[in-house]
Simulated scan of single mutants.
Amino acid sequence: MGFILRWLAALGLIAATYNPTPWNYTAWVDRTWPDQMPLAVLLGLLLFVGYVIYLRATLRSIGPFGMGLVIAVFAALIWVLVDFGLIRLDNPGANTWLAIFALSLVLGIGLSWSLVRRKLSGQADVDDVDE
């Protein structure tokens, strides 16, 4: 359940920043920038803090190679699904949602990986504090 919550939070963070609907931060800022500049800056900084937390944890736990590996596995899965005719890539909105989903998986796995590694190996990370 912990991984699902971390992944859903990552999905929410990325989808709140940008998605193909008009309900996202970038579209809202584009529409309301002159009138809502202070609120837009505040919300942008809050999103930035979320990205810093997720990216820092992901880079520390799986690193750039692990991030690339997760993306490669997801890309291969999409390739297989396209090859079997289960999905099509001619819809730009669906492609955007696939990218959002893939990036949220990378961040969710990155935030959860230390916990998974500790449960699998029984070894704590060096920077773990007693719990």
Rank of each mutant, 00 (worst) to 15 (best):
D30L: 09
V41Q: 12
W28D: 02
L69N: 03
I100S: 07
G93E: 14
L81T: 07
G110C: 04
F101H: 12
Q123S: 09
L111V: 14
N91W: 08
W113A: 08
G12R: 06
V129Y: 10
R118P: 02
A75Y: 07
I109L: 11
V49P: 04
L105V: 15
I87L: 03
Y18C: 01
S104D: 03
D125N: 11
N91K: 03
D127C: 03
D83V: 10
L59V: 12
G122P: 00
A76V: 11
Q36N: 15
T21S: 15
L115V: 07
I4P: 00
R117W: 01
L77T: 14
G12W: 03
L13K: 04
F3R: 02
V126Q: 11
W28T: 09
G110I: 06
I78V: 15
F74M: 13
P20V: 09
D125I: 03
L86M: 11
L5K: 15
W113D: 00
I78S: 05
G122Q: 01
G85N: 04
L46C: 10
F48G: 14
S112E: 12
D127N: 07
A16V: 04
R56N: 09
T58K: 04
V49Q: 05
R118Y: 05
V29A: 13
D30H: 08
M1E: 06
G12H: 02
V129I: 14
A75G: 06
V80Q: 10
V41Y: 09
D125P: 02
I53M: 13
G2R: 12
R118W: 04
L8W: 13
I87V: 13
R60W: 08
I78K: 07
G110P: 02
L103T: 08
T58C: 04
S121Q: 05
I53Y: 10
Q36T: 13
T32P: 03
F48P: 03
L47N: 09
A102I: 11
Y25V: 05
A27Q: 13
T96L: 05
L13N: 06
M1D: 05
W79P: 01
F74P: 01
V41K: 04
L8E: 06
Q36Y: 13
A40S: 13
V52G: 05
Y18T: 06
G110W: 02
V129F: 14
F48L: 14
W7L: 10
